[in-house]
Amino acid sequence: MLEALQYDFMRNALVAGILAATACGVIGVYVVVKKIASISGGIAHASFGGIGLGFLLGINPVLVALFFALASALGMGIVSRRTSLPQDTVIGIFWAVGMALGVIFIGFGPGYAGNLFSYLFGNILLVPTSDLALMLILDAVIASVVFLFYKEFLAISFDEEFSAVVGVPVESLYLTLLCLVALTVAVLIRVVGIILVIAMLTIPAAVAKQFTYNLTKMMLLSSLIGIIIVLCGLWLSYELDLASGATIVIVGGALFAVSFGLRGLATRKRPVAQPS
């Protein structure tokens, strides 16, 4: 693997992996503790409409997908909070319509969309240097917003009703959080692809949650776990000549299974007292 680092594409892959793991390490913690995995999956899939439009217009598809992700995050968030429609129904509709738009746009586009597959399932070896800059900017935005609203995001994740009582603007903050998920999706598209994004938004944070109950530590730990997963996946895919996005996700799944099993063993020895 070290000799592979002499290639530009491999160095880019490494940087992309670290940038992606950092974003999903931080935002994944909220996805897990606020239990917004399905709406995050919806945001990711709906962003495929942007990939299609990018192809059609000849603009960087990830950039257009970013705007689709933001629009669908706000759309799903607002519709599900302000109407009586069940949230999973709203998610299902946005999810499928977004993807369908992508298919239609690609159909209108010029000729054959060759590397479409890499947007769906990711290809960390194909990240252009210009996209690294975009990923870096998005990471910076995510980190700053989380730093500013740390105590508010913690409050609405724990107890929305009480937050509203003490005057926290719950809905605005919830929509802001969904927008951060949308930014994270855009960061992750190149690495694991639209369809596999949800794995990186849940696995590192879910593993980290088993080792700490401090939210900041959980973010640091889950970023670190994310980096390990991405680098291991990248190395395995290189050595075994497998699809990189899928290999990364499978490494993550395996790590989750192992940590969950270990924790199961640990808690069996030391049972937690149930409240009366």
């Binding site: 994740s157 009480f162 401090n214």
Partner: peptide, 11 residues
């Protein structure tokens, strides 16, 4: 949920 008693009270 990853939150301490102290953090809950500060809410």
């Amino acid at each position: 949920f990853p939150m301490s008693v102290w953090e809950v009270v500060l809410m």
